[in-house]
């Protein structure tokens, strides 16, 4: 099996300060990779570099495209990258506001990607939007409401629906449960776990919350000061951390 994504030596500098450096890994289809670390560890920088939102100072992000096979997305032209961003890739932002159109109804938010790839049947678009609202546990009566009228948890679920509606092959998630109440977080995690299993999603999830990766991630990368300090299967890393920093990270969380 070919890797879906092959990351080689990604490097990003902020002046003389390291954003992230020497990051390499492979992601296979259907696999969920978790990236953990405290704030400032470079994990969000890395995610934004991988997704093409930030310019890198070196490295390759090779994605196995459907039509052309493996292509370095960092060298893609902007049209190609934008096309990828609305078809095979999806990006779930920490703040739902950054990933939603707040002045467009829930249905319009979900429908946008469908229309962007050429769907021109209002009835179909609306049916699929309602179907997705259902899958993210939002009542179908809310289809014409704007996200401004939604709670934080609902906004986040709507953002997920909007991203997954076109069946992306790779999903980037930046702290998807950050900023939500604990009870809301639990429900969202549950939902995400269901979707990941059901759709066989390939995803890269950045979080500082070890509970998130324990539930969702197959493999784990631990980052500190822009460097990857430990990688491995999620259970292995969390239950038997090797690096001192990982040990600190794990021990600082109450064992459940």
């Amino acid at each position: 099996m070919h890797p879906l994504l092959k990351v080689n030596n990604i490097k990003k500098m902020y002046g003389h300060r390291i954003g992230c450096t020497d990051v390499s890994f492979d992601l296979y289809p259907g696999e969920v990779m978790g990236i953990v670390g405290e704030s400032g560890s470079g994990k969000s920088t890395l995610l934004n570099c991988l997704a093409g939102h930030l310019e890198t100072d070196g490295g390759e992000v090779i994605f196995d495209t459907l039509d052309r096979g493996p292509v370095d997305t960092l060298k893609m032209s902007e049209p190609e990258r934008r096309m990828l961003g609305r078809t095979d890739w999806a990006f779930v932002h920490q703040h739902a506001r950054d990933g939603l159109r707040m002045s467009v109804s829930a249905g319009g938010n979900i429908g946008e990607r469908l229309m962007a790839v050429g769907d021109r049947h209002y009835g179909n678009i609306r049916d699929r939007a309602i179907d997705w609202l259902d899958r993210v546990e939002i009542d179908e009566s809310r289809v014409d409401d704007r996200p401004t009228a939604f709670s934080g948890g609902m906004q986040q679920r709507l953002q997920i629906a909007r991203n997954l509606v076109t069946g992306p092959r790779l999903v980037f998630m930046d702290e998807p449960t950050g900023g939500l109440d604990v009870s809301v977080q639990a429900r969202l995690l549950d939902l995400l776990r269901g979707l990941v299993r059901e759709m066989g999603l390939s995803a890269i999830i950045v979080t500082h919350d070890l509970a998130v990766v324990r539930l969702l991630a197959d493999r784990l990368m631990v980052m500190k000061s822009g460097h990857v300090v430990e990688t491995g299967l999620t259970d292995q890393v969390l239950d038997d951390p090797q690096h001192a920093y990982t040990q600190l990270l794990v021990s600082s969380v109450l064992q459940v």
Partner: peptide
């Protein structure tokens, strides 16, 4: 101009979608 260059017209249809839904 970028949207025209890349033929990114999805947003235009979002507007029409919103019209119909409202």
């Amino acid at each position: 101009r970028k949207m025209h260059a890349l033929e990114e017209y999805g947003l235009m249809h979002v507007k029409l979608y919103e019209d119909i839904s409202q």
